[in-house]
Design a protein around this nucleic acid. Structure first.
Length: 669
DNA sequence: GTACGTTCATTCAG
DNA sequence: CCTGAATGAACGTA
């Protein structure tokens, strides 16, 4: 397993029998490349040099005990910080927290003449709302008052993951009669009402826990973490009270709806709002923009010279209208002017400059776009496709940190080999669906095996972790792009294998990745037992995936009871019919390059499907949270069950962890 | 597959 | 408290 640099310098052809792996299709061999640099040292097994925290949890748990609950019971108002531009606790804020009375059926005024929903639709919607409202009472928030006002990284991640878990769960209901439209809004509404948000107090500048480069797929997500507190409007502003009361812009979203110029990575020409430029009203009356609200705030911020957060919105490839938002850090407004728009009406324009010294975010996206279009070459590119066509999309091999020309020789296999079937409790011959298997169709035996709970959303995103995901297999008659074949259809995310600074080769993506996205399976050769030096088997096999290791439990699924009929087993403990050990030392795919982290962004999930009336289990990797482009992909390797009573060093075979997470366990493997 | 219109939402400011 | 503006998002149609 790629855990460090120690394995990458083995001579390519002397340590294993190539013929054994070269006669099976569809194999592609990686062009042999030899490290030109001196051998890098193998993994150090030195004892930890400092105190390592115990009681690790991979991320802030949704509920249940927390290692160090920060201010969990604090109910008193924290005094408003003396820092300028921080919104004081308003009465409105307190009252919103206090009386979440759930009046979700409050009538909303519609513009006259707008067609109204049919009564049956309204009834269905109301029923669902009531169900959601009832479910809310069981909902454990676990976010303290002070965390709601001012967050940190853990709270921000917790809110974002909880939002998406809930959104996926709500959008899973694909029976058209019960379909939830705008699951994002529904999930956001529930979380808002329960106070499961953070950084609710507006502020100028940095939002604690939100990092430059963070990505969002819904406006509501940015609202929940306090990055941009408007559900639709592009300019967010706040009133500051000082010697004179002032209105300041705090954040803007550049989404392409207006005539912005967003070509330069450090400069943004932003248009003011209003004038019905992009109104969804029937009358396309275009008017001059007025110096009010957001426009006024931008003008005041120009004179005050305060920092303005900039979020860049872009088209997401997942669908025609989907967007992805990238937090690009702090800018300052340099100048403003008024110009005539296409229709001849006045439009406010603002020129913003990015503050220097910030990590790049949008610039990374620009570079990737250039590489894709071939306008610029990737620095340090060694191979455009290390799979030699074994995958349907290329995987680049890149080294921009040193001279090493590639990992040690291995054979690229897109899927696992020598896999053994396991016996099912009851024999199964796949489903009988003619076209695509339909979620909710209990005539489909694959659906029944999944407890009637379709594992994926319409976008092919995993809804929840479960003991075993049952996909349709090669002998199911449904169409090849049936939605229940996500892990069999090959790579969808554009990946690259790259040289890390201190952990050998690693894996990362050019594409932004939504939580729950399938990344790859763990390919390789199924083996009976892990080879170790101790057993006289030569060197340790570090490219191993082993289901019998001990894995740190973590919570990924949405809380049970959010949706009324959602009473299925929500356990996230895996149930694998028989242990599975895969070695990718000699043959494997991109998964062999994924490094370990104690705070990973990827997790594995066993997936079963049938072939010739037998069932097989494979290991599929999914994104644990949203992953920005060029962020290293990591998962938790787990730990071997070391028998400490046998006199051996309990750390034998374990490797010093370099993941750098605050909750690092110190060792892994 | 993209482009555009329609529809139904939500939050916050005024 | 009430109202409406607002650089949403999904979906249907061309």
């Amino acid at each position: 397993m790629e855990g460090g640099s120690g394995n990458n310098s083995a001579p390519p052809s002397t340590t294993f029998d190539k013929s054994k792996v070269l006669d099976v299709k569809p194999l592609r061999t990686l062009v042999p490349v030899f490290p030109s640099s001196p051998q890098t040292p193998p993994f150090v097994c030195a004892p930890p040099s400092g105190p390592f925290p115990t009681g690790f949890t991979p991320f802030y748990p949704f509920n249940g005990p927390q290692p160090n609950p920060p201010d969990l019971n604090q109910q008193t108002h924290t005094p408003a910080p003396l820092r300028s531009f921080r919104a004081p606790l308003s009465n409105g804020e307190v009252s919103r927290d206090g009386n979440a009375d759930g009046s979700i059926d409050a009538p909303t005024k519609r513009p006259v003449g707008r067609p109204r929903s049919t009564s049956s639709q309204k009834k269905a919607k109301k029923d669902l709302d009531v169900a959601l409202s009832v479910a809310n009472t069981k909902f454990v928030v676990g976010i303290s008052f002070s965390q709601k006002q001012d967050g940190d990284r853990e709270v921000v991640n917790s809110v974002r993951m909880r939002f998406d878990a809930l959104r996926r769960r709500l959008s899973r209901l694909e029976d058209p009669k019960e379909s939830v439209s705008r699951a994002d809004l529904k999930a956001g509404k529930i979380l808002m009402k329960k106070g499961a948000r953070t950084n609710a107090r507006k502020r100028v500048g940095v939002v604690p826990g939100v990092e430059i480069g963070d990505i969002f797929f819904f406006r509501i997500e940015m609202l929940l973490v306090g990055l941009h507190a408007q559900s639709m409007a592009g300019i967010d502003c706040m009133v500051v009270r000082g010697e004179i009361e002032d209105l300041l812009a705090v954040s803007i979203v550049s989404s392409g709806g207006y005539d912005d110029e967003a070509e330069d990575k450090d400069v943004l020409i932003y248009s003011g709002h209003g004038g019905n430029v992009n109104s969804n009203k029937k009358d396309k009356q275009i008017a001059d923009q007025k110096l009010e609200r957001g426009n006024l705030a931008m003008e005041r911020s120009l004179h005050r010279n305060n920092e303005v957060r900039v979020i860049r919105g872009m088209k997401d490839s997942i669908s025609a209208t989907a967007k992805v938002y990238v937090y690009d850090g702090l800018y300052r407004i340099q100048e403003s002017w008024v110009e005539k728009g296409k229709s001849g009406c006045n439009i406010f324009k603002y020129k913003l400059l990015r503050l220097p010294g910030q990590p790049s975010a949008f610039a990374v996206w620009k570079s990737i776009q250039q590489w894709r279009e071939g306008f610029s070459s990737r620095v340090g590119l060694i191979l455009p496709d290390l799979t030699s066509g074994a995958e349907s999309i290329p995987v680049s091999l890149v080294n921009d940190v040193d001279e090493e020309k590639g990992p040690a020789y291995f054979t690229y296999v897109a899927t696992v080999k020598y896999i053994k079937p396991f016996k099912l409790m009851e024999p199964s011959y796949g489903c009988n669906c003619r076209s695509a298997c339909a979620p909710g169709d209990l005539n489909c035996s694959c659906n029944r095996k999944n407890g009637g709970d379709f594992p994926y959303t319409a976008n092919g995103v995993l809804v929840s972790r479960r003991p075993l995901v049952h996909e349709c297999g090669p002998t199911c008659p449904c169409i090849p792009n049936c939605k229940n074949r996500v892990s069999q259809t090959g790579l969808k995310v554009r990946l690259e294998v790259f040289k890390t600074k201190d952990r050998g080769w690693g894996l990362r993506s050019w594409d932004p990745i939504r939580a729950g996205t399938f990344i790859c399976e763990y390919s390789g050769e199924v083996i009976e037992k892990v080879k170790t030096r101790q057993d006289g088997e030569g060197e340790d096999d570090d490219y191993v995936f082993d289901t019998t290791r001990v894995y740190e439990p973590f919570k990924w699924n949405c809380e049970p009871g959010i949706v009324e009929e959602d009473n299925n087993d929500t356990t996230e403990e895996y149930n694998i019919p028989s242990p599975l050990i895969i070695s990718a030392k000699n043959a494997g795919n991109v998964a062999r390059f994924m490094n370990h982290s104690c705070n990973p962004n990827v997790f594995w999930q066993p997936v079963a499907y049938e072939q010739n009336n037998e069932s097989y289990v494979r290991i599929a990797f999914f994104a644990l949270r949203h992953i920005p482009p060029m962020t290293e992909l990591t998962y938790d390797y787990g730990t071997t069950c070391t028998d400490e009573a046998d006199g051996n060093n309990a750390l034998h075979g374990k490797k010093k962890c370099l993941c750098g997470s605050p909750r690092c366990r110190g060792h892994f493997g």
